[in-house]
Nucleic acid binder design. Structure first.
Ligand SMILES: [Mn+2]
Ligand SMILES: [Mn+2]
Length: 737
DNA sequence: GGACACG
DNA sequence: CGTGTCCAACGCAAT
DNA sequence: ATTGCG
């Protein structure tokens, strides 16, 4: 999944080391004579300059319960060190594993000796495929987050599974690898009495340096440079071990851990102006007390969201003062503003710099349980696990938390499901700014490829929406919408966005809607005009999802939607179900208009004319869906769980509640070919219908000479009362569903 | 994509 | 300048 | 309470 993505980091680490002081001697351990007959794992493998990979740092503070329990109470060092005879390894944030292979038999044991082979079948398989048929290895199973860093939170999604079904499903979502750092036995030789370096030499002969199973890297002697590079990469930490130590498998006092991340409280003494517009402030000025006076330490501008800025801003205003509380120990320019030093915040960082600043400061949160006067520079506090502080003697029980980085791949209807990988794609600066109230979008990166298979760029995306704006805007105007953003194109990471960030120019309309769930107002985008549409397109928005209700009548939807979702079912069946629905609507004298979802499904919209509530709409939709399913029981279903659908078309009536959305008519989809959700005439709903034919390139042409077939949806609404009478008559004729 | 901080 | 880090949803029902 | 789904 992400193998590629890590390569650059690996190179960086290697480079950082080579350039480092004294250049690292990758002294190869002497090959063991007993094992000389084993060739190197790869032809010509000198393992030169190979260094650790694997960024780390999310997840539990402590390198995983497993590691701790099994590897014993390694002491914790405050500072990295370099020492002859010592070996330095990356501290992986994973789960301990002992893997044994005897010919065809592979067995993996967890920390307390439980058999975890079935839980990680891909690793067992990779071990079974190695050239060396007999071994016992000690290592760590690791999962990675989107940006390629080890994520204990992700790994937990697999740690608890046991049913083969669940495991198989999770394999695709949470790929894992195993990194081994020790070799207990190889080709029948017990290696446990050998020194660590010798065992690592054997390890390198059994395992490749990269892959689903890999030999963990290490360097000798030069711990500081290694630590430096590890910190640079955001790794969790390093472990130092004596190079000549025999295998103990258990507690080892000659192991020393050094963590990269630190955190402590700081006093807020001011803030800077934001560089762009939008935010209240750019960064906070923070410091600590030293000999009774407040000393400036750093600015910290990363880590708060808009909500935190909003919360902080009034407090900063009320504490405003003219001169710097840091005296002459900090900056004082026109862009700096000062406050009474009464607020305390917590900051995560990698290290103190020589001149008393911080490297990589990240704001964590405000702390009101700490008096500002008590805030001093602390020497030895390393960071705990990120989401929740946790006692050191943690058990292995799960706790979600994590960085909340759900790989939100929007699906809407019959979705692709193609989750994006984080790619090391080209990065470019650029801005869409509000030039003094001027309704002009400054487009950025218009040549960036968004659909690599088709060669369409972000400029094409924006151009498309500009072109179809006259057709599309009637379905967007006055409506809260939800963006699905793909800033790096359809293969990149994606996310939903409801709340308009503070930096959007004020000429883009927003509508505040209270969210019960998050207990706050969400400022939804509202796209009333082509400029606003261009603005969100420039943000990398591909699909636009629209509410069925408009501002001013948010509880009274304009339409009802029935969503026909295949998901394995043949498209011909979708057509057949849609036509059955149409016959029912005709029978009941109800209006209904079809559109493609843009993926593989069809939407049928019925005008409601703001006559009913969302609840009423949903109830009526369920009634209609039931009639359809009754009409086509062999090929349609009302069952939501995928496994219960049995290859039938899902008649989804449930997307008619408050706050539910549909892919807006004419909206593009993040799929190869750039298909659009395209309104249809009923006469087009037949066996020759191919949804892929309506796309970024072709759709504008289609509507040059075709009126919007969906227009009726915004017209007079249907009458449920009349329809229900007709339904009763129909049931008399045909029997109850 | 856009906001930071850093080198 | 370029680089890296952080942030950007929610409402359900089923188990 | 956690997950699956859209
Ligand atoms: Mn659908
Ligand atoms: Mn980006």
């Amino acid at each position: 999944m992400d193998a590629r993505a890590h390569e650059p980091e690996r190179e960086r680490l290697a480079a950082a080391q080579e350039g480092g002081p004294g250049r690292l001697g990758f002294r190869r351990a002497r090959a063991l004579s007993a094992l000389r007959h084993l060739g190197p794992h790869r032809a010509g493998d000198a393992r030169r300059g190979r260094v650790a990979r694997r960024p780390a740092r999310a997840g539990r503070g402590e390198g995983g319960a497993q590691g701790r329990a099994a590897r014993g109470p390694a002491t914790l060092a405050e500072k990295p060190f370099s020492r002859r005879g010592w070996v330095f390894e990356i501290k992986y944030d994973g789960v301990r594993v002992i893997a044994e292979r005897r010919g065809d038999q592979v067995k993996m044991l967890g920390r307390s000796g439980e058999d975890i082979t079935a839980r990680y079948p891909e690793i067992a398989e990779a071990l079974g495929a190695l050239a060396v048929p007999h071994f016992v290895l000690d290592g760590e199973i690791v999962a990675y987050d989107e940006s390629g860093r080890p994520s204990f939170a992700r790994l937990q999604k697999r740690m608890l599974l046991s049913r083969p079904r669940d495991v198989a499903a999770a394999m695709a979502r949470v790929p894992v690898r195993a990194v081994f750092f020790d070799c207990l036995a190889l080709e029948g030789c017990d290696l446990r009495k050998l020194g660590l370096l010798d065992r690592k030499e054997c390890l390198a002969r059994a395992l490749p340096p990269a892959g689903v199973v890999q030999a963990g890297d290490h360097v000798e002697e030069h711990g500081e440079a290694f630590f430096e590079a590890a910190s640079e990469m955001g790794l969790e930490g390093i472990i130092a071990k004596r190079g000549d130590s025999p295998y103990t498998g258990k507690r080892s006092t000659d192991w020393v851990k050094v963590k990269c991340q630190r955190r402590q409280e700081f006093v807020v003494g001011g803030y800077t102006d934001p560089r762009g517009g939008g935010r209240h402030f750019g960064a906070l000025h923070v410091g600590v007390y030293e000999d009774g006076r407040l000393v400036h330490v750093t600015r910290v501008g990363s880590g708060f969201d808009d909500a935190m800025q909003d919360k902080l801003w009034p407090q900063l205003q009320s504490l405003a003062r003219k001169d710097s509380p840091f005296g002459d120990t900090g900056p004082d320019t026109r862009a700096d503003h000062w406050v009474e030093p009464r607020l305390v915040c917590e900051v995560r960082f990698t290290e103190w710099t020589a001149d008393g600043g911080l490297r990589h400061p990240i704001f964590i949160g405000m702390r009101d349980d700490r008096k500002p006067e008590d805030v001093r520079r602390e020497e030895g506090r390393e960071a705990e696990s990120e989401p929740l502080p946790e006692s050191d003697v943690a058990s292995d029980d799960a706790q979600a938390g994590g960085d909340g980085a759900s790989d939100g791949v929007p699906s809407d209807d019959a979705g692709d499901g193609g989750a994006g990988e984080a790619r090391a794609g080209p990065v470019a600066r650029g801005g869409a700014g509000s030039a003094g109230g001027e309704r002009v979008v400054r487009l950025s990166n218009v040549k960036k490829t968004f659909w690599p298979d088709d060669g369409y760029t972000k400029g094409d995306l924006i151009g498309y929406y500009e072109t179809v704006a006259p057709l599309m805007l009637p379905y967007l105007r006055d409506r809260p919408i939800v963006l699905t953003r793909y800033p790096d194109g359809i293969k990149g990471k994606s996310f939903f966005q409801k709340d308009a960030p503070v930096f959007v120019p004020d000429w883009v309309r927003t509508e505040s809607v209270y969210s019960k769930d998050s207990e706050r107002d969400i400022k939804y985008f509202v796209l009333d005009d082509v400029e606003s549409l261009r603005y969100v397109a420039n943000m990398g928005t591909i699909p636009i999802h629209a509410w069925s209700a408009r501002s001013g009548s948010l509880e009274r939807p304009d339409w009802l939607v029935l969503d026909l979702d295949p998901k394995g079912a043949p498209f011909a069946h979708v057509i057949e179900v849609a036509l059955a629905l149409r016959r029912i609507l005709d029978d009941l004298e109800l209006p209904g208009h079809p559109k493609t979802s843009g993926a593989t499904g069809l939407h049928v919209l019925l005008p409601l004319g703001r006559r009913y509530t969302h609840e009423e709409s949903k109830t009526f939709a369920r009634l209609l869906a039931t009639l359809v399913q009754h009409e086509k029981p062999e090929i349609s279903t009302l069952a939501r769980p995928l496994h219960a659908r049995g290859g039938k078309v899902y008649v989804d009536w449930g997307q008619n509640g408050h706050g539910n959305t549909i892919v807006a008519p004419y909206s593009l989809r993040p799929l190869p070919g750039a298909p659009a959700s395209c309104p249809l005439k009923w006469s087009e709903v037949n066996g020759r219908l191919d949804p892929a034919r309506f796309n970024l390139r072709t759709l504008p042409k289609r509507f040059e000479k075709l009126d919007d077939p969906l227009a009726g949806v915004l017209g007079p609404g249907l009458d449920m009362g009349t329809a229900i009478v007709a339904i009763e008559e129909r049931m008399h004729r045909e029997g109850p569903p």
